[in-house]
Amino acid sequence: MTVLHGTHVVLRPTTPADVPALAAIRAAPEVRARWRGGDDLDAEVAADLDDPGTHTYTIQVEGGIAGLIQWYAEEDPDYRHAGMDLFLAPAVHGRGLGTDAVRTLARHLVDDHHYHRLIIDPAADNLPAIRCYTKAGFRPVGVMRQYERGSDGTWHDGLLMDLLASELVR
């Protein structure tokens, strides 16, 4: 994995040394509400690093760790596409850094890995994330009803969004 440079962010391969800082970000109430997890967030972040199907980047802003962005792929030639997900520290929310990180990774996936379609699936009620992804060029495809179980134990809707390579903002 290579280091990717956005306008304001640097996406670099995540290392085991990043796990405590990333787990601390995941533990923030604003993040934990969207990225559920158990009691051992360090182990969960580390598990993402060990998953050969997940490609994980640490988001850096001004030299500090601001979050994580990751991608995975469906490689069946008839359905080939890549998906992504991310989280950012609450201290950097609202600064356009999520949009910059998503655009930066999207360019990499289209230009270097030749994916023609990218997907992302925020919670249907996560309006800040939906705005972020829309600014990066993603479009709503449809609501996935009762898509994921929330921390309250009930099922919640997700919004499937996609971006075609031809729509990527350069």
Rank of each mutant, 00 (worst) to 15 (best):
L11P: 11
V10G: 01
T15P: 09
G67S: 04
A101V: 09
R95I: 00
M161S: 03
H55I: 10
D100K: 06
G37A: 01
Q60E: 15
E148Q: 13
D152H: 11
R80K: 14
Y115H: 15
H156R: 15
R12L: 11
T134C: 09
G94M: 06
Q60H: 03
V110D: 05
M161T: 05
E75D: 13
L41S: 02
F87A: 00
P140V: 01
L22F: 09
N126W: 09
V9H: 00
L109Y: 14
A23Q: 07
A43E: 07
N126E: 10
Q70M: 04
L68C: 13
A21G: 02
A33C: 03
L163S: 00
A27R: 15
N126T: 01
W71A: 07
F87I: 06
G6R: 11
R80I: 01
P52D: 02
R139L: 14
H156S: 09
G94D: 01
H113C: 12
E30Q: 15
G158R: 14
D111V: 09
P128V: 04
L22R: 06
R107Y: 11
D112T: 11
L164H: 15
F87G: 00
P128M: 00
V10N: 00
Y57G: 00
Y79T: 08
M144D: 07
I130P: 14
C132N: 05
A73C: 09
Q70K: 08
A73F: 01
P140A: 04
Q70D: 07
I69Q: 06
L41Q: 06
A23H: 07
R139A: 14
D112E: 15
L159I: 12
T58C: 07
L11W: 10
I59A: 02
T14R: 02
A165M: 07
V143Q: 14
R34K: 12
W155L: 15
D40W: 10
I130Q: 09
L88M: 11
I65L: 03
A66Y: 00
H81T: 05
H55N: 12
I120Y: 08
